[in-house]
Design a protein around this nucleic acid. Structure first.
Length: 491
RNA sequence: GGUCUCGUGGCCGAGUGGCUAGGCAGGGGUCUGCAAAACCUCGUACAGCGGUUCGAAUCCGCUCGAGACCUCCA
């Protein structure tokens, strides 16, 4: 049951059985962030989506090499005025060094990803560290005759390529249509056709990030980095390439064209694309000015946020929707996710203390639940369905605790295993914020107070008992009177 | 303008021909000194209009609405 994984392939627009080229090895490349701003909720979506893929593939015992790049080339420009050479030169020294900007936002991205419990990829290459590879790939494309040089820049010859290979195979576009719809861009007059894209761009004077090449002092085109680094670390053909749907065209389309032109073969078996996060029905994006940074979510410091949302709440929220659906941000939805997440975590705490209370005949059947969990994940990583099944299990757990359901030893150990595997390992959810708060001294103090309350209750002094509870509640504690005694937790 | 996607109950969100997820919120109940938690239970939704079918949220057509891409973008 664990080995029939189906993945929706954007290339064929169908769910396909996943068969790695070199099982048990799997190569996966995902487009990472452009590090020029704070990571926002939009960045969390692909990171978490492919973290789920990474975790599940590893659970299925594949040996995954997961490459997620850092884009640090081609987007960084100095805003200083042109022509004012002296000032510009001085400004250069006082300005941030580009790599300083890169480092700052890369660190910030990593911090956010760690808080979201996103595993580090196997390799995280920087585009700026692979200029050699990109230049050599450009040469291969030139040698193959699918590119031309013009005024120090190198462009991909889409029209020529399209005569032998379909440009538009991934996005479903046709070159003739592109002809009619492409807008005016700078550098347009250097190109044979408006839809030709740059493999190497001659740097304008204000462009700081530049490298010498046989064509000009310049920098590689945006699409080159992923092709070059994917090939470098995963080979000319690898299993999975992921990224946001907004990258499908032209980025991924062009990656295919570059690889086919350079290596003569399709680079990727399975193309996966996560959908966008929307806010008021519109895509959330830095350039649209409606992006809420992850830091702001964690602290609640944004006018759109009614409260802070913990990293695990964000993670749970994202995984409660299928990765190919748009997911609409709202406080109501986040608050619902927060409560759901806490309920699941609370149930797991209950589960740990559970004892078998029945024999095999009267026991609940966990094997069935387990099979459903695998079925959900095997169906194109359907995390919302998986979570729905896990909530069914939450009811089972709580019912066993209440003595309303029976479980035997075998099913109990299967249950515990199931939740550790699916909730912790695969969904990557963990309890947050408790370990450090429940230190010994505080715990003993709280338990002392609860003991006093217990004694007050025995004396029917409910006023005192309630006063203790109210004050502990005011401090952010949750007091639960169960038939097995009092329990407390930090809200 | 071109290409494509989507429109599900109060909110979020699965589901792609019959078996009518799940979470949150709300009503009722059990338990409890009370409360909380938990459990049980109730809301019977699929934009509109036609069509195909024994049967459609699910397939087809049209209408309306929303969005994405075509430019950097997760």
């Amino acid at each position: 049951m664990e080995n029939k994984l189906f993945i929706y392939n954007s290339l064929t627009r169908k769910k396909e059985l996943f068969e790695p080229i070199n099982a048990p090895h799997v190569g996966m490349y995902v487009c990472g962030p452009t590090v020029y701003g704070d990571p926002h909720l939009g960045h969390a979506r692909p990171a978490i989506t492919f973290d789920l893929v990474f975790r599940y593939l590893q659970h299925l015992e594949y040996k995954v090499r997961y490459v997620r790049n850092i884009t640090d080339v081609g987007h960084l420009e100095n805003d200083a005025d042109e022509g004012e050479d002296k000032i510009a030169r001085k400004a250069r020294l006082e300005d941030l060094e580009p790599m300083e900007v890169v480092q700052y936002y890369t660190n910030s991205y990593h911090r956010a990803m760690h808080l979201l419990n996103v595993l580090d990829p196997s390799i995280e290459p920087h585009a700026s560290g692979h200029i050699i590879e990109q230049m050599s790939m450009i040469k291969k494309i030139l040698d193959a005759g699918y590119a031309y040089e013009s005024e120090g820049s190198v462009y991909f010859d889409v029209e020529k390529y399209n005569k032998e290979h379909p440009y538009g195979i991934l996005s479903g576009r046709k070159v003739e249509e592109l002809m009619a719809t492409t807008r005016e861009l700078d550098g347009q007059q250097e190109k044979k056709n408006s839809f030709d894209f740059a493999l190497w761009k001659k740097a304008a004077p204000e462009h700081i990030m530049r490298w010498p090449s046989e064509w000009s002092d310049g920098f590689p085109g945006w699409h080159m980095e992923c092709s070059a680094m994917g090939t470098r670390y995963l080979g000319e053909e690898f299993d999975i390439h992921g990224g946001g749907m907004d990258l499908l065209f032209p980025h991924h389309e062009s990656e295919i064209a570059q690889s086919v032109a350079a290596n003569g073969r399709m680079p990727v078996r399975y193309w996966m694309h996560n959908n966008m996060i929307t806010i008021n029905g519109q895509k959330m994006g830095k350039s649209l000015g409606n992006a809420v940074s992850l830091e702001e979510f964690f602290t609640g410091s944004h006018e759109l946020l009614k409260q802070a949302y913990s990293p695990m709440t964000i993670r749970f929220f994202i995984m409660q929707a299928h990765y190919r659906s748009t997911l609409d941000f709202s406080n109501e939805a986040l608050q619902a996710a927060e409560k759901g997440y806490r309920r699941m975590m609370a149930a797991m705490e209950v589960m740990e203390k559970l004892q078998a209370n029945g024999n095999a005949e009267e026991s609940v059947n966990i094997a069935e639940l387990k099979a459903k969990c695998y079925e959900a994940m095997n169906d194109d990583f359907n995390s919302p369905i998986l979570i729905a099944h896990l909530f069914d299990g939450v009811k089972i757990i709580n019912s066993i605790k209440d003595g309303k359901a029976k479980i035997d030893e075998e099913n109990l150990s299967m249950l515990k295993e199931l939740y550790l595997v699916f909730v912790n390992d695969i969904l990557g959810l963990k309890a947050e914020g408790e370990a450090e708060s429940k230190d010994d001294l505080s715990s003993k103090l709280i338990e002392t107070l609860l003991q006093l309350r217990h004694e007050a209750k025995l004396n029917k002094d409910f006023a005192t008992a309630d006063k203790i509870r109210d004050q502990l509640t005011a401090l952010g504690l949750v007091i639960k009177d169960t038939k097995d005694g009092v329990e407390w937790d930090i809200e």
